[in-house]
């Protein structure tokens, strides 16, 4: 497969203007990418588990039956999607497949073969799930280099949520990168239960990311966002980096330090508050401290702090360098799990 160094393309004089978009070429590539990547895109069926309704239970009886309810939180009944990660059957999908706590997970490949899937591990902060099927010689994706995933690139979303032999296609662009604490890229392609767990691909056939039902605040998205033009994907490179831990059966959760930065501070990350009982408090951090580095990596804005923490998980130990007045100190803290998890 060929990958063009996009950054080098950018160095071209501005020959290609967006106003004379080569629509024929883009269209031909979208078709081609949909065909080429179809074998990577699998259907994930979740059978059994909790029944559910869209809205609050209508009767007390329904409420007693333990029907999963969440007012205004729409889910879906159809299959969801996954992407093959390794030729021996590791599959990435999303927690969307698991929200009903299914008894059986069945993966169907593009060639029609079905496999029983085992759930290995999950990353709650990314809504990412790793499954395993007993298959061999599967095709694997080509991840787009993170530096080449930039706003304005076309983004082809593929999924099997609609059923059918070939994956459904929707087209958008990369809207932004580094969203949800740096965990996700954002695309304007229609992203919904029709393609959660599917790949977001570039025109060159590389996979930019894995489509995930992340909500705006990092929680799980409701179906309501489905053609909002706002959808998230985990950079595939991140998925590949984190997959070994999940494949070992780990369940990763967002890590909490327990500090709130002063958003108006001009001199760096100054702590506006430190939550009582939090890892930060245990490490001796106080309101007014200036946070300089995390694990040696400088943090100069609230955003960098958020991004640094978003890359870590509950249970991870971090080394923090802080300044209080003229005094500099180095402390260690072990990130906690978010309350309620």
């Amino acid at each position: 497969m060929r990958a063009l160094p996009l950054l080098l393309l950018l160095a071209l004089p501005t020959l290609a203007r967006a106003d004379d978009l080569d629509a024929a070429a883009v269209e031909a590539r979208v078709r081609q990418v949909a065909r080429d990547l179809a074998p990577l895109v699998v259907e994930v069926e979740a059978l059994g588990g909790l029944d559910e309704r869209f809205d609050a239970p209508e009767t007390e009886e329904e409420a007693r039956e333990g029907i999963l309810t969440k007012a205004g939180f729409k889910q879906a009944h159809g299959p969801t999607t996954g992407v093959i990660l390794s030729s021996d059957g590791l599959i990435a999908t999303t927690t969307f497949a698991l929200h009903r706590e299914p008894r059986h997970l069945i993966v169907t490949l593009h060639d029609g073969r079905s496999f029983v899937a085992r759930l290995l591990g999950r990353d709650e902060a990314r809504a990412l799930v790793i499954l395993k099927i007993d298959a061999k010689d599967l095709p694997v994706p080509r991840a787009a280099p993170p530096a080449e995933v930039v706003p304005g690139r076309f983004a082809v979303a593929l999924g099997r949520g609609l059923g059918g032999r070939s994956p459904g296609v929707s087209l958008g662009i990369v809207s932004a990168v580094g969203r949800v604490g740096g965990r996700a890229l954002q695309s304007s392609a229609a992203i919904s239960p029709a393609n959660y767990g599917g790949p977001l691909a570039g025109l060159d056939g590389s996979v930019l990311g894995l489509l995930v039902p992340l909500a705006l605040d990092g929680g799980m998205a409701s179906v309501d966002l489905y053609d909002s033009g706002i959808g998230f994907a985990l950079p595939l490179a991140d998925v590949l980096a984190i997959a070994p831990r999940l494949a070992r059966g780990e369940v990763l959760r967002p890590g909490v330090l327990g500090v709130s930065p002063d958003l108006t501070a001009k001199d760096g990350v100054r702590l506006a508050s430190v939550a009582a009982g939090s890892p930060a408090a245990a490490a001796g951090l106080r309101e007014g401290d200036l946070l300089l580095t995390i694990d040696g990596e400088p943090v100069t804005t609230p955003w960098e702090l958020r991004r640094a923490l978003a890359r870590r998980h509950a249970g991870d130990e971090v080394t923090l360098e802080v300044r209080r007045g003229a005094e500099a100190r180095t402390v260690k803290a072990r990130l906690a799990a978010k309350e309620g998890e």
């Binding site: 063009l4 071209l12 290609a16 978009l21 080569d22 024929a24 883009v26 706003p151």
Partner: peptide, 24 residues
Amino acid sequence: DGDEVLRRALATEAGQVALVARLA
């Protein structure tokens, strides 16, 4: 042909990326 289409598609995309980078 396939390579030519890919080249054209990526060239036209590069224009769009450059535009977005200029406006952001």
